[in-house]
């Protein structure tokens, strides 16, 4: 593993993010991420715009070609891959829970959930908590294989706790690190690490 790869990987996961955010996502120090991304910008691998970084087409190609090299050992780690397969099964449930959070079934028709029905919301949040608890041992196994994934544990927990406190936007708001935002970034991270394609 090298730090430049991690920095580019962080930009792929956290598009348009500042160096501090990229650092937090992949476990680099802020100073290190900042200097690496400046170097990458000079080398034409990333482009800086409005304080955030995106990969250049060349940067993207270089990054995509590095995964198999850096994660070859992990891809052969049976415990890690088995944990990933369990994650994919939980992922199906999680997506359903998030969808149920966003939509109400009213007499067979789907309408937008405006969160005025507290009982309904409480039921869905309870299910989200259940899915989270079932995912915890799986994540622990993934972290044993790739320690930097621990960052997701903290982010998922804090999003869940915010939601349980009544801050409804922490379930699926796309503009903050809501439970779904973090879950999806983690999914993207795992897909890249393992060289898998997303299946919807």
């Amino acid at each position: 593993m090298n730090d430049m790869h991690l920095a580019l990987h962080g930009v792929a996961i956290k598009k348009h993010a500042a160096a501090t955010v990229v650092a937090g996502a992949v476990g680099l120090s802020e100073a290190r991420a900042d200097s690496l991304l400046k170097e990458a910008a000079t080398g034409g691998r990333v482009v800086e715009a409005q304080g955030g970084y995106v990969l250049s087409p060349a940067g993207r190609m270089i990054l995509d070609n590095q995964y198999s090299r850096f994660y070859g050992e992990l891809r052969a780690d049976q415990a890690f891959v088995a944990a990933y397969d369990r994650f994919e099964r939980v992922n199906v449930e999680l997506k359903q829970v998030i969808t149920d959070w966003q939509t109400l079934d009213v007499g067979g028709q789907k309408v937008r959930n405006d969160h005025s029905n507290k009982d309904y919301d409480a039921g869905v949040l309870d299910r989200l908590g259940e899915v989270h608890e079932r995912f915890e041992p799986i994540l622990a196994q993934l972290i044993r294989g790739l320690p930097r994934l621990a960052v997701y544990r903290h982010k998922l927990e804090s999003a869940l706790e915010e939601a349980e406190r009544g801050q409804v936007q922490w379930v699926s708001d796309a503009k903050i690190e809501s439970y779904h935002t973090v879950w999806f970034e983690m999914h993207e991270d795992l897909l890249r690490v393992l060289g898998r394609a997303r299946e919807e």
Partner: peptide
Amino acid sequence: SPDDVHGMIACRAVVTEQGGATSHAAV
């Protein structure tokens, strides 16, 4: 994927070829 979220924020509509009601694009 998460890579597309910025574009989705700016657009008038999002359409996809694969996935259902629980897909990333839908959520």
